[in-house]
């Protein structure tokens, strides 16, 4: 991999999502400074960088969780950073999926109910939602765990359930923030393989925030966030 100098040359062809000159700060602390990045449809993009570099902030801005102070965020060419909160919520619910490091499963619900949540929120009937949720258990190799609660799952199992929840509604973009951060390397690799292959099968674009090169290696392309600015790395060869 070789470092490409900024500014990044954005190829507008097939671009699904982009951030342009995004600035964000937490009080006196700047988090992003004129950060720009474009994400092509169907690609797996790894956002790397050291702790505190602003990579999670960039993900939150892209996902409409945070609103940039300056700059713009576009999805399919349309600015989404100007959307009001309820529209951004709807966007996250309908177009995006999320996988976090840990703690995203609702402890009171069974694994299958957790996976079915986005479908139920989308208005699907209970039985249909559960049937569609169960399909993912076999697909991700966690069949038999449907009735378990989050407290009865191992870290890897819980992350696979979270992954199923993130993908069950067929989002356009899956945002994964350190999805293997709380797992051992072997389990982490398994989760990443499943994440990438499932996303590719469904044609889902993935924005993957990680500080681990081994995880980033699963991506098609990597960008580095350092001191709130984005640099680009050369494209990876397809993950095995």
């Amino acid at each position: 991999m070789s470092l490409v100098t900024t500014p990044i040359n954005i190829d507008t062809k097939d671009v699904l999502m982009e951030a342009r000159d995004v600035e964000f700060d937490f009080g006196q602390t700047p988090a992003l400074r004129k950060a720009s990045v474009s994400i092509r449809e169907g690609e797996v993009l790894a956002v790397m960088g050291p702790s505190g570099s602003g990579k999670s902030t960039l993900l939150h801005c892209l996902a409409g969780i945070l609103v940039p102070k300056h700059g713009e965020i576009r999805l399919s060419g349309e600015r989404i950073d100007t959307y009001p909160e309820h529209e951004r919520s709807a966007l996250r619910r309908e177009k995006f999926g999320f996988v976090f490091q840990f703690g995203q499963l609702v402890p009171e619900l069974s694994a299958e109910e957790n996976v079915a949540l986005p479908l139920l929120l989308g208005g699907l009937r209970r039985n249909e939602a559960l049937v569609r949720a169960r399909e993912w258990f076999e697909r991700l190799g966690i069949e038999g765990l449907e009735r378990r609660r989050s407290g009865e799952l191992s870290g890897g199992q819980a992350q696979r359930v979270a992954l199923a929840r993130g993908l069950v509604a067929h989002p356009k973009v899956l945002f994964a923030d350190e999805p293997t951060g709380s797992l051992d390397s072997l389990t982490g690799e398994l989760v990443m393989e499943l994440l990438v292959s499932a996303a590719r099968e469904d044609g889902t674009t993935v924005v993957l925030v990680t500080h681990e090169p081994r995880v980033a290696a699963y991506a098609d392309r990597e960008v580095i966030v350092r001191d709130g600015q984005v640099s680009s790395l050369a494209a990876n060869s397809p993950a095995s």
Binding site: I65, S89, R93, Q104, P107, L117
Partner: peptide, 14 residues
């Protein structure tokens, strides 16, 4: 339950 709730809201749950 503030963490799971926060993450649910983050995922777009109204």
């Amino acid at each position: 339950r503030r963490r799971p709730f926060s993450l649910l809201r983050l995922s777009g749950v109204p």
